[in-house]
Design a protein around this nucleic acid. Structure first.
Length: 169
DNA sequence: AGGACAACGGTCT
DNA sequence: AGACCGTTGTCCT
């Protein structure tokens, strides 16, 4: 996974969203990372450590453009999923879930044909590199409780509440 | 309602 | 090889 982003034209930047300040990582292929770091340093570290990027270029202007599309206009910009085949199959499942609805960890496990791998599915969802765009927040526990969220259960609750208030079409 | 516990499977060290 | 997990079912109080 770490050898995939050794190119030199990697950008990253920070932008405010209705759910907190986010950090977006991108290449000319599109967005590969959206996170809600606690600090600027944490956002930077995530990109460098997780993807093994050598040099990354701060570009808040581009980040702002992406953020506006994602969080204000509801547009899905170009993005790329970086992970293991297992993880990617799960993240692709998440992309099928429509705004305003939810699924469960167990249902995702069933959907990829590995009903026993629920625990691993939870871990893979927790490793989602692209917050919000890949809607890992729409996965809750089988008993109806919220379950966890990498960036804080409170934020997960906020996003889900907000999605409930959107008009469905 | 909540806590303890085991089984599960992918991933990281 | 061992440990870590955004879970789940079961068995408690």
């Amino acid at each position: 996974m770490k050898e995939l982003l050794q190119q030199s034209n990697i950008g990253y930047g920070f932008s405010d969203t209705p759910f907190g300040r986010c950090c977006i990582g991108f290449t000319d292929q599109g967005i590969f990372s959206v996170t809600f770091p606690e600090s600027t340093g944490e956002g930077f570290d995530e990109i460098v450590r997780r993807y093994g990027c050598k040099a990354i270029i701060r570009d808040d202007e581009q980040s702002e453009t992406w953020a506006k599309q994602i969080f204000s206009d509801g547009i899905v910009p170009p993005f790329q999923l970086i992970g293991t085949p297992f993880q990617i199959s799960i993240w692709n499942e998440l992309l099928e879930i429509k705004r305003g609805s939810c699924s469960t960890y167990q249902q995702i496990a069933d959907a990829i044909g590995r009903p026993k791998a629920v625990r691993a599915v939870g871990t893979a969802i927790g490793a989602n590199p692209i917050a919000f765009l890949v809607p890992c927040h729409r996965i809750i526990r089988s008993d109806g409780t919220l379950g966890g969220y990498k960036w804080g259960v409170e934020r997960k609750k906020q996003i889900l509440l907000w999605e409930k208030t959107l008009k469905k079409e």
